[in-house]
Structure formats: C-alpha cells, structure tokens
Design a protein around this nucleic acid. Structure first.
Lengths: 188, 188
DNA sequence: CACGCTGATGTCACCTGATGACATCAGCGG
DNA sequence: CCGCTGATGTCATCAGGTGACATCAGCGTG
C-alpha cells in the first residue's frame, strides 16, 4: 500500500519543525514543508488539520495518559493530588528530551498563533481532568479549580525546567512548584 | 473627516456579534459583516486585525486597568492579594452586563478559534501581571504562580457567574472562589 | 494469473482570510 | 479658495484550507 516513500507524516513533522525554526512560522509556507518532505501540499493537510497542528499532534495521546493517571489515583486522594498524579504522567512523557522540548518551545513562543494553539491544548486537558474529577464525586467548582490550578502549576514548572541551567527531572520541578503554590495560598 | 456614516468600528462590532450568534463564526464571512455595517471588507480589516479580534478589542484596556489595580495595591499586600485586586478591577469592568457577557461567551465557546483567542488574551494578562509582580520584588516563580493561579481563579469564577441562576456580583464570586482555592490547597 | 478492491497520494478548481498599492473625496485650517 | 489629511473604496494578489476526482501499488480472491 505505498508506491511512495512511507512515513510521510514523520517527514512532514520534521520538515515543518526545521523550517519553522530556520525562518519562522509565518515565513514558512505549507508548500515549502511539503516539498521538503517530498509530497504535495494537499497531502500535508491530509496528515494535519492545519499548519499549526503539525507541532501538536501528540497532545491527544498526552491527554489520554494524563487521564489514565488521574483515574489510577486512589479514591482517597484529594482532588489536587489526583491532578498532581496526572501532571506526573505528562511530565514523564514530555520531560525525557529537554533539548527537543526547548527547541519546540522556542518555535512556539516565537509566534502568537502557535502560542494560541498551545494554550488551547492545555485548556482542553484542564477541561478533561475537571470532568473526570467531577465523575469522581468532586464538587463542580472544586474540580474546575483543581484542574485549572494544576495546569497553571505545570505551565510555571515547565518554563522553569526549560530555562534551568542544570538538567533536572521535570517531575521534581513540578512537585517543588506545587509546594510553592501551597505556601503562596497559605500565606494570605 | 468623514463623508460616510461615522462609527464604522462600533457598527462592525455589533454586526459581527449578531452574525456570529445567528449563523456561527465560521459561517459568517467578513464580507457579510462589512455589508451589514455598510462598509467594505477592506475597511473591516482596517479596524480589526482579523475576523476574531472584533470580539476582543477591549481587552487591552482591561489589561491596563488590571495592571493599574495591581500597582495600586499596598506594598505590604501578598502577591496573591495584589493579583486579587487586579481581578477585582477586571470584574468591575466585565461584570456589569451579565446578559451581554453571556451571549458573548456563547459565541466564543462555540468556536475553537475564538476560544484560542480568548485564552491568549488571558495568558497575556497573566504574563503582564507576573511581570509587574517581579518588579515589585516578588520572586520569579512566585510571581508566575500567583498570576497564573489568579487567572485560573478568574476563569472558574467567571464561568460560575455566567451560569448561576441568580445574578450575583462577579467580584463576590471571585472572592468565594479564591477562598475555595485556599481550602483546596490547604487540604493536601 | 487476472481481477477488483483499498488506501494513500496527486491534480485541479475554488473559496475565504488577509494585505499591499493606489485612487477618492469630505472637511478642516490657512 | 486651496491644499492637506484621514478614512474609505477599488483592485490585485497571496496563502491557508477543502471538495471532487484521478491514479496507482499492493493485497486478497477466485
């Protein structure tokens, strides 16, 4: 089933990341990506819904894993602890290759459209986590708060991890940041 | 200065909101909005950077007011309290007309592109607030956490306010939600 | 082995969002 | 009355995105 080189999706992903990095997201046209990957522009859109999605197509898997981790948390765990377990799972998947994470983040932060997409992915994860918390019997507002706050912690921790001088374990940074949040809210 | 009907910007804003509500964001073309407002599509783009921005062009003002409120907070206030003051200012501007807020939110939530834009506006506010906190001498991580968490509280509170049966004061809902967050993080 | 099915890709046409360049014209100050 | 200014119209063009249809390698089947 393939008279063409297989793995068009991966080639497109790599080509896009490289070009976005080299000349910027806006300056890169879909035709350029497709050409570098050896396919046509139409094929690009068969693999990715739009020009941005090529950098985010792993996020659904991320969401699934995080939900699984949340559901695996003991029923006795607090809402925030359950979310912490979910974040731990995410960190396990994302925190492996800091160099890659850094270049990807560089590309994303350099463009508003990409930042928007990044934000909605995290928002989607937050919504799903809140939903699962509610099914666990957590109150409506509490579920929303725990999920949103957890994602906020993740964002801050991720940025710290990306910019840190030493290569730490992302999960540790998250735990630290969560502890700092507890101190912060208690101080008031 | 104006051989045409003045107030093209307002007319475009109203026309866009109405059409987005009637037939949906994607089904509405810029030409339709322009026509209803009595101008050409080119003029639409002179007033608003893109099709989405027409729903968000007040947000820069919102950001300014929130920053002013944060800076007006006493130097002795905790980071979270300063952010709470900023949120209070935002609530004062947004919380006046719940009916309008509700229809606007309906339109935004019905479309992913609009949700993205909404998210980046809040993220931008978070970034600005964090920056001002740092200038106040708040630690790097703590500033980021306080700002992100504050915006998270705002999001949850806003949704509660929008969906509440009785018409409450948004500022009260925010205060309540912040108190719930404190309980939530203390429980762990 | 020939046949037809399947799925990924190419090709073409087309719509819409968005932007640059230039023309137009009312009102304002001089 | 004249010329400037600023908002708008007009035109051309590009890039993102989608639908419809053609193409063709490999696969299973009779």
């Amino acid at each position: 089933m393939g008279r063409w080189e297989p793995g068009a999706g991966s080639r497109l992903r790599e080509a896009a990341l490289a070009l976005y990095l080299e000349r910027g997201f806006e300056q890169t046209m879909v035709a350029d990506i497709a050409e570098r990957a050896g396919v046509t522009a139409r094929t690009f859109f068969r693999h990715f819904a739009d020009k941005r999605e090529v950098l985010f197509d792993g996020s659904s898997e991320l969401e699934e894993k995080s939900v699984a981790a949340l559901e695996a948390a003991p029923a006795t765990a607090s809402a925030l602890d359950a979310v912490a377990a979910a974040l731990d799972a995410v960190a396990g998947m994302v925190g492996g290759d800091r160099e890659f994470a850094r270049t990807r983040q560089t590309v994303i932060m350099a463009n508003a459209d990409l930042r928007e997409r990044e934000l909605i992915k995290l928002a989607s994860m937050s919504a799903v986590l809140a939903d699962r918390l509610r099914r666990r019997g957590v109150g409506d507002t509490e579920a929303g708060l725990a999920a949103e706050t957890g994602v906020a912690v993740f964002r801050v921790a991720f940025e710290r991890w990306i910019n840190a001088t030493e290569d730490r374990d992302l999960r540790d940074v998250i735990r630290e940041t969560l502890a700092q949040l507890r101190a912060l809210t208690a101080a008031g």
